[in-house]
Structure formats: C-alpha cells, structure tokens
Design a protein around this nucleic acid. Structure first.
Lengths: 350, 350
DNA sequence: ATCACGAGTGGGAGCGCTCCCACGGTACCT
DNA sequence: AGGTACCGTGGGAGCGCTCCCACTCGTGAT
C-alpha cells in the first residue's frame, strides 16, 4: 500500500498509537516491548496496560527492516524429504531444536535442499538474508554450503563436523568413545575376534568410530587385524556385502561391531544364512539405537546418541553466535565444538 | 540499525543503487523486479543487467512492510510432532504442497500446534499476520482455529471439511465413494455379511464413509444390519475392541470394512486369535493404503486417497484466495470445495 | 495545427519500527 | 554554589521497498 490508503482505523494498532494511549513517547514503548531495563516501573505498567487494551502486536516486517534482523533461523536438511521422514534421527533432532527454541521469540524454518533446484532456491534465500542463522545437519565433507554460509557471514552451526579441523561451530556425539565402549563391551564378554563394518569413510564420524574400535582393541592388549575391518556405506546391502567378505576372510570371528544399525541388520541376514547363531556364535553390536535395533531378532545392542540434546545444544551455540555477531566482537576461534557422550544400550544380541 | 550506521557500501545493494546503475528511477526498477508489463524492453534489459552486475536481491522485510504482505504461508498441524512424523499422510501432503509451491516465490512454514503452549504461540503468530494464508490439516470439528482465522481475515484452506456446510474452502477425498467402492468390491466377491468398523464419528470423513457403506449395501439390495456397524476411533486398540464386539454380535460375518488401515490391523489380530482365516473365512478391507497395508500379512486391500494431489489443490485454492482478497472482491460463496476421487487398491486380504 | 490519450517513466510519501542523540531532572560529589 | 554523573524519556532520522501521482513524450483523431 504505502500511501495512507489502507482503510485507516481498520488496521492493527501501531507503536505510535500505543504511545499516545499510554501518554508516553514511541521510544519508551519500544523499550518496554523489547524488555529494556531503562524504563521506570510506573511507565512500564502504563505501557503494558495500553498494549493489552489495544491488543497491540508488533509488526515483524517493520522490526526486521529497522533492526536488520529476522528473528528466524533455518534448519537446513541437505536430503530429500523422504529421508527426512524416514529417519527418526531428524525428528528427534527437530524435537530438541523446537524445545530449546520455544523459550525464545525465534521462528524455525525447515528447509530441504535435496535436489539441485532446491539448492538454488536455498542459495537465493540465504543471499536475501532471510534468516539470522542456520543449523546444518548431515552435511557431506564436500558440500559447498558451509562455505557459502561463511561467505555470506551468516552464523551457522553444524551437526557432525566435517573433519578434525572443522571451522564452523559444531555439535557432535562422541563417536570415538561410543565405538570404543561397544568394542570394550564385546571384549569383556569374552569375544576375541571382533570385526568392524565401517560407515562411509568420507563421513568424519565413521572414521572416528574406526579409531575407537582400534584403540579399544589395543588398550585391551589385542592387536588389530586389518582383515577384520571392512568398509561399508551405511546401507543394509553394504552391511550384507561387508559381512560376507569378513566371514570369508576370518571365518573364526566371534563378534561384529557395525557402524550403524542398518548395516547390522544386513550383517545379521548373512550370519543367519550362514547358520551362525546370534549371540551364541557371533555377538553383534550396532550404532544409533534406532527403531531397527529394538525390533530386530534378537534385539540389537547399540550405541545411543543423545540426538535431542544435540539439537538443543546446536540452538544454544547458534543463538550465542548470533548475539555475539551484533557488536562486531572478534570471535575467539577456540572451543565452539561440543561433543556429547553416547551410551551403550545392551540387548540380547551379545 | 536505522541511522546511517551499518558500514555503508559493505551492505547489500538496494533498489536505489540498481536504479542509479541502470540510469533509471526507483519506480522503474521496482516494476521490472515485479514483472510489470508497463516497462519498455530496452529499459527492462538495462535494469536486468544492473541487477545481475550488482547481485541485487530484494529485501523481503522492506517489501513486506511496504506492500503489507509476507509471501509466506503456513501449514498448520494441530498435532504433536510425533504423530506428524509417524504418519505418511503428512509427508505425502507436504510433498504435494512443496511441489506446487516451488513454482512460486512463496515460503512454506511448518507449524505444529499440538500442545496448549504451541497453540498460544500460533495465535500470537497469526495475530501478527506473519503469513498471508494458512493450510489446515486434520482439524477436529470443535477446533476454534478456523474461527480465529476468519476473524483475523486470514485466507485459509482446510483439508477435510468439518461438516457438510463447511464455510472455509476445502479439499477432501471422496470418502463416500471410497467406502462405497470398498464395500461393493466385497459384495462382488460374494460376501454377504459385511461389517464396518467406523472412525471417530466427530470426524466428518468418517461419517461419510459410514454413509458410503450403507448406500453400497442398499444399492445391492441388502439391508443394513446395525449390529454389523461398530464405532472405532482410528486406533489399533479400537480396531481390536470393535472386532471383538462384532464377532460376538454376528459370528457369521464374512467381511469387514475398516475405516482405517490401523483399525484393520487391530481387527486382523482378533480374527487371527479367533482362528478365522483371511481372506478365506473373513475378507478384510482397510482405508488409507498406508505402509501398514502393504506390510500386513496378508497384504491388505485398502482405499487410497490422492494425498499429494490434495496438497497441490490446497495450495491452488489458497493462492486464489489470497490473490482475490487483495482488491476487496466480494467472494462468491459457492464451490470452493474440491473433492478428489479415491482408488481401491486390491491385495490378498479379500 | 490542435487536442486527447495512453504508454513509459521519475520520485514523493509512507509502511511501522529501532536506534541514537539530546534534554530535563535528580542525586551526589567537591 | 557549582560541577559531574547518571537515569528516564521524547522524538528525528532512517531502514528499503511499493504505490501512486504527475510529468513527458509519442501517436492518432479532429
């Protein structure tokens, strides 16, 4: 509209009107609305009364324009929507994020960037600075998104660092420790030939799980037999393939630590076909503690990540990041990398 | 910021800068950006070049403020997030909505309003007119949301009308026809005592399914035995309870039409416990054609709704609604109720 | 030649807010 | 008494855009 057009008086009340009603200036009302401490109690009460009477609700667009912020953050999922809904990982994450955000005035946007088209749209979106910050989940090592973000100077937090020298603030679960505890558990139960099916090694977390596997063996005085390690790709089919391979190389293995529950499911199929009983002949441990683990036959021991908590911590980090950015503070480049503990959930599979 | 603060020149280019660069006025650039036809080809080309060179991206907040619109619409889900993820209904709907919206500049917001707290937040959100329109899914008959929406004069479309005289524009699948085709199919296969487990009867669609059930029987020359109808509540437990009840009343029944796949699953359990073979002794048909139907043993014949298409049509209606609202047209109160055909997917259960 | 008209254009005003400067007042020093 | 230090407050300026009015040209009818 612009221009005094829009049927005057029919519209929503403005700051100015509230100010007039409360008998104060615009600035004062603004201060009350934004919770500034520099307002006397009496004035604050008067303004609050006027706000209530008029049913005043701030105009977000005007605020965004004047203050140069949007009060919105985006959760960017570089996957097709299908995967998003299929994996409980995302819904748990979303729950944590939502819970933490409920405390604030911030609005959460869910953005899928699975297809090229969606990615172009996202780039446009970010270029328009339509969000104050971005949460990045499940990003591959070679994804250009993080760079785009820092180029545009948009605060971002990543879940699962891309490497040991991740430049973005990040939240991760302790992949190393989780893997290590899984293997230690197997060793404690008397297994002595523990195999490992890894995840895709271009995923940093999968590498760390391999490290944990190795160190657990070494710490227990075993040596690491490379024939007991087979690279998988996080899929069921990959789990089957790896398991077949491992059995061929070391038929005497008595335990398998799979880098994900899905791969464990694949491994289980092969073991069953080969007539190996679980856990009697071969003990099995997975990773993620997903629904699959609970419903497998036998129920699968698995490493649980505190995903909801991860979501919460990501928001914490991001809000700090956004707040700090305002008065151009030189950011301390140190520890904005959060690592949360995992927990081994033991079930019948070992 | 306000005030010339923000380190000049570091910022993003504005309309004014594009205008200067192209050697035209602000108004002209605005016209080009918004695709107005009242611009000469030469001028348009010049402006587009300037936009490209400067990497100009419109400032959404400024536009929203001046034009009094947000270019965003909300998909409101009055359910806890958990249900949202659990049911493929929502993800299919989202897919359709997203696809249709990809054609436009509109932004989609996903808003959950399961808890009271979330609902209050939503009310606030709507009062602030932060969206141009709202998509309402799975709304109960007594939900105050639709009224709030029309009171605030926010365009809205509802999926699944609340009653036969729904006032909001709506998109629905043909519950009556779907139910009727299911029952007709059973009758055609020779069943003669077809029972029906209904959904919650405060859901209009569930009522329509009962109507379809009745009419199919009548049309085929059967009479309707009320003992063959038992009210369920869309849950598995409800399906079990209803099935038990039905078997007690009419042990001779030879077919069951369940108002949802989940209830069919419950019914199947009871039938199995009672030693009735499916489909030999009792034929079973569900509704929704969800994943459950495909994975049931035996696979369940079910009525499929074109959910993705429904999502698309909802967006169509909503966009029309929003566009029409601008020049205060007196809306024709007639047919803005879309009903889409269902399809019976036959499997081994009958 | 004169007038009327529409197509194309420039730019003022205004959307509702935040930020900041300036101001009067009170309290506390010297 | 004068100075200094705040505190609480009012209001100007400006954020980047859209809308509309006014203006300049052609062009065709008179």
């Amino acid at each position: 509209m612009g221009h005094g057009a829009r049927g005057r008086s029919g519209g929503r009340p403005t700051l100015e009107e509230v100010a007039a009603r409360a008998g104060v200036g615009r600035g004062t009302v603004s201060r009350v609305i934004n919770g500034s401490p520099r307002v006397s109690d009496a004035t604050r009460a008067a303004v609050e009364a006027a706000v209530a009477e008029l049913g005043y609700v701030p105009n977000t667009a005007a605020r965004a324009l004047a203050a140069n912020r949007t009060d919105a953050i985006a959760l960017v999922v570089p996957e097709p929507e299908t995967r998003f809904f299929a994996e409980p990982y995302f819904s748990d994450m979303l729950k944590g994020v939502g819970a933490e955000l409920a405390e604030t005035e911030m609005q959460l946007l869910l953005i899928f960037a699975g297809s090229d088209r969606e990615r172009r749209r996202l780039a446009q979106y970010l270029a328009a600075h339509r969000v104050d910050g971005v949460l990045l989940v499940s990003v591959h090592a070679d994804d250009p998104l993080p760079d785009l973000l820092s180029q545009l100077e948009i605060p971002a937090v990543i879940s699962g660092p891309r490497s040991a020298m991740e430049t973005l603030p990040s939240v991760d679960s302790d992949n190393y420790g989780g893997a290590r505890s899984a293997v230690e558990h197997l060793l404690a139960r008397g297994c002595c030939a523990v195999a490992h099916i890894t995840g895709r090694l271009d995923v940093y977390g999968a590498q760390r799980r391999v490290d944990g596997y190795r160190d657990a063996l070494l710490a227990a005085g075993h040596e690491v037999d490379e024939r007991l390690i087979e690279v998988g790709d996080f899929t069921e089919e990959g789990g089957r393939r790896a398991m077949t391979e491992l059995l061929a190389r070391r038929p005497d293995l008595d335990a398998v630590f799979a880098g994900s529950d899905v791969m464990a499911a694949g491994a289980r199929q092969v073991l069953r076909e080969e007539g190996r009983a679980i856990p009697a002949d071969v003990a099995l441990v997975g990773y993620d503690d997903s629904a699959i683990a609970r419903h497998m036959d036998p129920p699968l021991t698995s490493v649980r990540q505190p995903i909801e908590e991860m979501g919460r911590r990501m928001i914490d980090l991001l809000l700090t990041e956004i707040a700090d950015r305002r008065p151009a503070v030189t950011r301390d480049l140190e520890r904005r990398q959060v690592v949360l503990a995992t927990k081994l959930v033991t079930r019948a599979s070992c």
